[in-house]
Nucleic acid binder design. Structure first.
Lengths: 238, 238
DNA sequence: GTCTATATACGGATAGAC
DNA sequence: GTCTATCCGTATATAGAC
């Protein structure tokens, strides 16, 4: 599977996230008509991500958000009780969506290398489609309230553990060379972050998503001493 | 050279940075006595980094800074004309200090692999000593005014070019295997950032600076196919 | 459901006493 | 050189008309 195919697949389930937000925040959202909520939440989230990623969530004023969405100040507060709750909603729902996709694309694999390859490719592709979200998670994590912060850290740790257990399994089966698991997992996550944080730099250097995913897979094959280095040519494992 | 030695060497030139700040901002700093300026700028910079790294520079109020430094609101403004200028001073002076150290530790090498090893080790060590600064550069880069932003980007690009030219040179001499230079350089920078951004995670996993530097060097030796993989055992090249 | 007008608090920055 | 008191703009959030 290449990026174009992945993208097509994802766009199908695009609006799910808003239905979920509505369901989870029913009492906080004063608007009754679901269709209106979906339409405006979409605007609000998009605008929030856009402005925040330029100058930070704190620096974004509600008037900025007004202007960008075309929704008045008063009306905005019908969709969330406070600016802080808007942050919370974005974070929680975004992370849930990401986790769901990663799970659905990787849990099917048995062999560690297949799983690792799928995880890398899915993560890179997903962070490309949802780049503003990933950038936002990364930059605004420190501004979360304690409760959301705790959830974020737990989610992060869960991903990390899955990565580490895949590496460990691969080592036990003799599929991977022996490497420091913690450091290797951290490195993989660092390379993921590199993609969505320095997105514009890669674009200016004409490096595509597919190239980056291939690069990471080839790189790991090399580092872990995996014999099947076909990660970049054959996509049959994903 | 290991981290302890590097640290000792660095601490000697610790106060230089403040003398430079004073020299470069003489007209903006209303205080006459140099000793007072050095003492208080130290407090102000430390406090700014501490608070900003917790909740962001924008979110830090001047009153926060008052409390943390123990210097009153009015007095603070004797050391810089505006909050924005404080940001500018921190960025400019910090970056200059970093660049100077990196230059002094790497320009002496002729062979690419020696240069690359020295660069990696110096960068990792330096980002450990100056962790709050590096974190600050990374997180606040997008909040700079256009002029400082331009300087920051230029400096960044210069580092990048040096890294890329080292890689290219190594390839030409047949010392390194052929790899995508841009991607490799970006990866190295990503791994650098990983260290100072996820510092606390590495601490909780009991991974030391030396281990991380060794890891990166070994890693690159592997990736570039360098035969001398002694980066982690023998430090004689640095 | 959406708007405009406004309450209230907090931000950066300055004045002027000591 | 440092302090306290204050100016004034802008922030979040709400009230109440339409």
């Amino acid at each position: 599977m290449d990026y174009q195919q992945f993208k097509k697949m994802m766009l199908a389930s695009r609006q799910d996230i808003f239905l979920e937000v509505i369901a989870e925040n029913r009492e906080n959202i004063r608007i009754k008509k679901e269709k209106t909520v979906v339409k405006n939440l979409d605007k609000i989230f998009k605008a929030t991500l856009k402005i925040s990623n330029q100058k930070g969530f704190q620096a974004m004023s509600m008037r900025d958000l007004c202007q960008e969405t075309g929704i008045s100040l008063g009306a905005l507060y019908a969709y969330f009780p406070s600016k802080d709750d808007l942050l919370s909603m974005l974070m929680t729902q975004g992370r849930d969506a990401v986790e769901r996709v990663l799970d659905s694309e990787t849990l099917q694999f048995d062999d560690p290398w297949g799983k690792l390859k799928a995880f890398i490719r899915t993560h890179v592709y997903l962070s490309e489609i949802m780049r503003p979200w990933f950038y936002f998670f990364f930059m605004e994590a420190k501004n979360l309230n304690p409760s959301d912060r705790k959830k974020a850290i737990e989610g992060d740790l869960a991903t990390e553990m899955r990565l580490e257990s895949t590496l460990e399994e691969g080592q036990k089966l003799g599929q991977f060379e022996k490497r420091d698991i913690v450091l290797t997992a951290e490195m993989i996550k660092g390379l993921f972050a590199n993609w969505y944080i320095k997105r514009s730099k890669f674009r200016s250097r004409n490096i595509s998503v597919d190239q980056y995913a291939d690069f990471m897979i080839e790189f790991m094959a090399d580092y872990l001493g995996v014999e099947d280095q076909l990660g970049k040519v054959s996509g049959e494992n994903m």
